[in-house]
Design a binder for these strands. Sequence first.
DNA 1: AATTTTTGTTAGACTATTCTAACATTATAG
DNA 2: CTATAATGTTAGAATAGTCTAACAAAAATT
Lengths: 218, 218
Amino acid sequence: MTLTEENYLKALFHLSLENEEVSVLDLSKSLNIKMPTVNSMVKKLSSKELISYEKYKPLTLTQGGKRAAGLIIRKHRLVEMFLVEHLGFGWDEVHEIAEQIEHIKSQRFFDRIDQLLDFPKVDPHGSPIPDINGEVAIQNYKKLEECHEGQQATFMSVGSSQDSFLKLIDKLNLKLGDKIKVLEIQDFDKTMRVLVNNNSEQTLSQLGATKILVKLNV
Amino acid sequence: MTLTEENYLKALFHLSLENEEVSVLDLSKSLNIKMPTVNSMVKKLSSKELISYEKYKPLTLTQGGKRAAGLIIRKHRLVEMFLVEHLGFGWDEVHEIAEQIEHIKSQRFFDRIDQLLDFPKVDPHGSPIPDINGEVAIQNYKKLEECHEGQQATFMSVGSSQDSFLKLIDKLNLKLGDKIKVLEIQDFDKTMRVLVNNNSEQTLSQLGATKILVKLNV
DNA sequence: AATTTTTGTTAGACTATTCTAACATTATAG
DNA sequence: CTATAATGTTAGAATAGTCTAACAAAAATT
């Protein structure tokens, strides 16, 4: 499988998680590649039985396609974890590098990394690392935005890997695993005042609160 | 610069070190790419002022080409070192992986590796790692083959990264830095009997002795 | 239901890298 | 010093991945 094909599968995989149905246009936007190109690539991947394709119908991955995509995402997330844990990169710097290293052809390379990291289950952003069969554990975390005043939760994962968002989280001194207590929600714009680890008070916009994924405490 | 272009430059760089003059055919053989393809690529790289090209003349790298090639080789060797030192790979396993990772676009990535390795000067095979300007320190080691009976030398580098050769060196329990004393050279076929670190006796074919690069002791 | 907008598809062209076949030049060997 | 061999070049085709322009279908709107 080529690097390009891998990128198409990965994108479709991600889009399928976020949306009920995925269109050629969705894939086109997500890859920043024009629709006709996507159309022909989809046909090619369909002929390889990685994507199920029927004219004018939404796109879906076949079993094989899901597995292949899962394995690429596994490599990506293992590499991200490795870059953070062993090379001292910040979580806002690793995506682009992992995007390239994920395509390396060497099972042993990724196995070593996995082993060195002691078989991690999540990447630096809290996203689950698919297993050796490409299966992803489903995480059903709540958006902090959906929490009510007085509730306490644990910061488990981020809903966006956008650089600016990750930098904001860093600036707020928030880390995965932190306890977050919702102190107050502004009626007007849903801005949240929260208490982090019972010691630092921070303010979050509604948009920000949407991208902070939490597990409610007790 | 594309991955392909980088590979042409790297190959030409290596060939230029080994031979007085490098022909299109040499490059073609070394890359396993047919001559007409090489010919057109050489023209392209010539137009980018990375290779000096005149019809029917030997190929040479320009200053810029040398620098570019040196920087790629730097990345390659840093990665090899990293794979051996931090990921526990054998020196016979790292070439192919480094061949892929060397093309990663991220200065910071290689800088980190360099730093983590404490700025190594040689790779796991004893080959010099070019500096940040792509300059390679010239090593003038002797081939063990050229040594005489009774001479003592230190194993500094290998003259081949062929898998089978590296595996042989491993089997003989030879490591870079080992002291090698030439005990006897067979007149008939130049087979060498040597003493390693004053304790283990080994036999080397002439071909093998050609690929073992040493520094004479005192 | 008819029209417009959005989305999807087809056709054909372009670039990068590769190839084969044919031809040209240089080097080598009588 | 010519004939042959080796090396180098040109021309033209193939594949992968991309694009634009034009057309087609489906969805949304009036």
